[in-house]
Structures are given as C-alpha cells and as structure tokens.
Nucleic acid binder design. Structure first.
Lengths: 143, 143
DNA sequence: CCGCATCCCTATAGATACTG
DNA sequence: CAGTATCTATAGGGATGCGG
C-alpha cells in the first residue's frame, strides 16, 4: 500500500503522554529554550503552573525517560533536571510546532524585536540550526 | 541574541489548543491518514472517543479554522468534515511526532507488515513525500 | 438509520495552603 | 527550595433524547 493512501487503521504513534498534555509541553519548552533546570525556575513561567502539577509532570517525564533528576552539587539545592537524548530529539518537533503556530496563530502578546528575531531565525534556520541547539543541549544536559 | 541561546522569556507558540489535548490530535490524525470524513466514522477509532467529546472537539476545530463542516450531497448524511489549509499544514508536525514515537516509544500493539512499511516510508520519505500527501489532502478536502 | 445535545455521575486535574 | 496535602471544579464516560 502507498504510504500516502488512507488506511482504516492508522499506525502513527502520537505519543499522547507528551503531546496530549499542555503542561508537559510547557515544561519541555522551558527546559529546551529558557535554560531552566530547577523546580523553582520552572514554576515561574508566564503560564502559572501549579506546584503539584509541576511535580507530577516532572515525575512522569523522569518515568518516561525524558528527564533525569540529580542533586545540585554547588548550591545544595536538591533537584536539578536534565534532558535525556530522547527528549533532546524532540526539539525539531517543538520548533516546528512553534513555526506552525507563528504562521497560523499569531500570538496575542506583543513580542519585542529580539524575541521575534529569535523565533524567525529558529524557524528559517532549519535542521542545521536545530542540530546546533541540540548539540548545545547535549553539552549542558548529558554528562 | 543568538537563536540558540537560552532566553528567560520563550516566544515559541506551542498551540496548546491543539497539541495540549489528546482527543483533538486523534481526530486530526484520523482525518489525515484514515480518510474518515463523517461523525460516525470518527467515533470508531480504537481509542473509543465518546460522542459528546467528539462533538465538542469537532466544534472547536471548526471554530479555530482547522475544519469546515458541510452537508453530504450523496447520502443525505448531514455532516461531512474537511481539513482546511491551516490543518493540512500540520501534517509534517504530525508525521514527525509519529517518527519520534516510532523510534523512542515502540508501540505495544503488534503492527502488521503493511502498517510497518507505511510508517517507515512516511518517515524516510521526508518532506517530499509529506508534500505529496498534503497535495492529496488538498485535492480531497479543499473545494 | 445519522448527527449531535443533554443529563447524570464519577474520576481526576488543578488551585491554594501547607510542610520537611 | 522542593515538593505534599487538601479541597474543589471540571473533563469525560455512558445512557438517553430528539429532530431530520
């Protein structure tokens, strides 16, 4: 059967544990693009995630192998979260969702010039630029 | 600022109305890859969506401009749903989510050979093949 | 039949307050 | 700082209704 022909049974795995939940996506976004590593930092997002929800989602992500949790040696802050390779490979998907949203769902919030440039470059940079960001994440998150 | 440098404020629009909800994603998947167009057909998915939930999600998708709703002239079945261009342009994202899931979240269900080939071709075919499927969807869904 | 709308009921998500 | 406990609102399953 042709890969473009409709099928009665669709074998595409939508990974609903991740993409079917809004808070999970926001956590991944912040870890990928805001340099946040600590519980408290992730709490401060504009979307006002509740602490119990954040704790729940972090635990789920660790459970699914998308994050690892370890102690922070410098500040004696107990938890520092790191993206795994499995999570880092989600970056292209996250960027493309952002690209689609930027085209079709213009954000109500006013973005400053630097932010607009940031998004545009990430989108137009393509796989080359995504790979660079992925390498940066590997350098920081993978030991 | 470099587009790969972490930002305190992340301008990426995750389109949570779509990717933050599991049922919405399943409906889009079925419309894109299973050739389903009618309410009743969409009810029959393996995931057992309830009729009230399906009705709600279809209404939301129409409201957000991802679907149009019209009468079926042939069978006097009242509703037939069509993807808009806005929705068709989500196909690459959906396929890439599937690619990631196929690599990192091996499906518990046993897929038959045809299904496995279908997924593999869709993933390895790349943007060229996605564009072909998008054109096929345009031919069927856009008047 | 088909495409929903509505009602009821329960499980769970999530906001707020609190704790080690 | 990094979570837990508690309490409430809501999502969603299942049945049924209803006009066409």
């Amino acid at each position: 059967m042709s890969p473009t022909e409709p099928r009665s049974y669709c074998p595409i795995n939508l990974s609903l544990e991740i993409f079917g939940d809004a808070w999970t996506l926001l956590v991944l976004r912040d870890l990928m693009f805001s340099g946040k590593r600590h519980f408290r930092e992730l709490l401060q997002s504009d979307e006002r995630i509740s602490s119990n929800i954040l704790a729940d989602r972090l635990a789920r992500l660790v459970e699914h192998g998308l994050l690892t949790r370890s102690g922070d040696p410098t500040h004696r802050q107990k938890a520092i979260y790191s993206l795994t390779e499995k999570a880092i490979q989600l970056l292209p998907v996250v960027v493309q969702i952002g690209a689609w949203g930027s085209r079709w769902v213009p954000d109500a919030r006013k973005l400053d010039a630097a932010a607009r440039r940031f998004v545009r470059q990430l989108q137009e940079g393509g796989p080359r630029l995504w790979a660079r960001r992925m390498d940066e994440l590997r350098a920081v998150h993978l030991r």
